[in-house]
Nucleic acid binder design. Structure first.
Lengths: 252, 252
DNA sequence: CTACAAGCTTGATATGAATCAATCTGGGTA
DNA sequence: TACCCAGATTGATTCATATCAAGCTTGTAG
């Protein structure tokens, strides 16, 4: 799959965590400068995926966790009868595949929502490295634990909150995650379709659409297709009084 | 908190993983016989909790993960405005607190549903040990990953399935978990109140009650208070066509 | 430039489960 | 023993959101 055409090309395939702009969000976060080489040694530069491409498929052999470098990814589970549940959206610096560490096969399918590049961390090598680097192990525990918390928040959202509250929570989560990535937290493009939002939040597409227009009429947001502007973040927080500012509904 | 009355008593406080009947479900599962001593060295025997006692409270300093020895535990998150979301039920051999590894404080409250005893794994020591024992580290990753998957299954259940389907899924999950513990998978006592079930599954208590009686009228189950007998497991699976036999909605 | 399809919005109606309101039951206790 | 109270059940009504059914927009391939 990777174009390992010649030995000469292979250095280009290696990612440089040293120079990566995401090093304060991604795994390097937990690694000392002088140990960063060890992390670089195990990272594989993944290919570029176009919108709609699958990064990996549910039930195929589990090889690597992926860190999003650029673009955006959605993960979803598909059941026997074909119904889909979107389980998360991932932005640059976030690690995809933590739910698959328990088996031989991927527990979900990961799909690029836009043109996306990734870094791959082969699981055996990653486990070896975390054994050797307690800090990194600790960080992995943290990431996984946060993903559990995120799922619990999502479950809470799904079982206790109205359509408006769920959508407000999602917008706020995206907002803070974009902001942490030094992008605007008030004006951004939704990487996902309305139907993905609906599926993720357990709503019908029509409901999502209606809530968006309702928010727009109330002057809380402005939307134009996938472009969103949060005009009144406080009102948005007001819609969703329970929203824990620290824990977005999907993993960071 | 622990009654460390005299030096003489302290050996009694130490758990013996060697002789524990849950060793094939709990952490010892991942540890070689000859290394079990190292695990025993870090385990603390917890006290006995009565029904309703808190094993730990949300936002208090995070010290240990707890393995249920006997009894049953429910975990829940409580938001500022006081609303509760039950996030899981834990049976003997299951590890409570994995969602709290990411912070200084417990992310949820754990409450004994009946008379319960536990083993405590202090987190610093556990991390040290998993660094030293790749097998154990691997197992921790597995457990956490499964908990993520479980949460995703729960989210799916909440967003896609009807009240009947959710309850069927819970009963089937409990059934298979009891069975793995060598108890009857067809006749057991629900450790939790109807209101806990309702909260966990995002339903009103009344709805839970109604579904139970409907199932009973259909001859699928028989209930008497908290006692449940699954009379027709196949029908129960039929109610819930999507139910993944391998992954119960709450962590194992 | 046009046309088509996919995605999005809007409106009308149906419905599953919440809510409100009693009543019942059983286990613990005075 | 009888009482009490929390938990559980049952019934009547309401409501938020799904579903069904058109239109509308937009990006893109020809």
């Amino acid at each position: 799959m990777d174009r390992a055409i010649s030995v000469k090309l292979s250095p280009a395939l290696k990612a440089s965590c040293h120079t990566c702009s995401l090093s304060n969000l991604c795994l390097p976060l937990a690694v000392e400068e002088n140990q960063l080489d060890q992390l670089e040694d195990i990272v594989e530069q993944g290919r570029i995926y176009d919108r709609g491409d699958h990064l990996f498929d549910q039930d195929t052999p589990f090889r690597s966790c992926l860190a999003v470098r650029s673009g955006a990814v959605k993960t979803s589970i598909i059941t026997e009868n074909g119904s889909e549940q979107v389980t998360g959206f991932f932005l640059p610096g976030e690690l995809v595949g933590l739910d698959s560490l328990s088996g031989e096969r991927y527990a979900c399918t990961a799909k690029a929502l836009e043109r996306t590049s990734v870094c791959k961390f082969p699981i055996e090598k990653l486990e070896e490295l975390t054994s050797a680097m307690p800090e990194l192990q600790h960080h992995m525990y943290q990431l996984m634990s946060r993903e559990i918390q995120g799922s619990h928040q999502l479950a809470m959202l799904l079982s206790k909150n109205s359509a408006e509250e769920r959508i407000a929570a999602l917008l706020l989560s995206l907002s803070s995650r974009f902001q942490r990535r030094r992008m605007s937290g008030t004006k951004f493009n939704l990487p996902m379709a309305r139907s993905d939002i609906a599926n993720f939040l357990g709503l019908a597409v029509e409901t999502v659409s209606r809530v968006f227009t309702r928010f727009q009429n109330q002057g809380i947001i402005r939307t134009q297709g996938r472009e969103v502007e949060l005009l009144d973040i406080e009102s948005l927080r007001g819609v969703m009084p329970d929203f824990d500012r620290q824990s977005p509904p999907s993993p960071r």
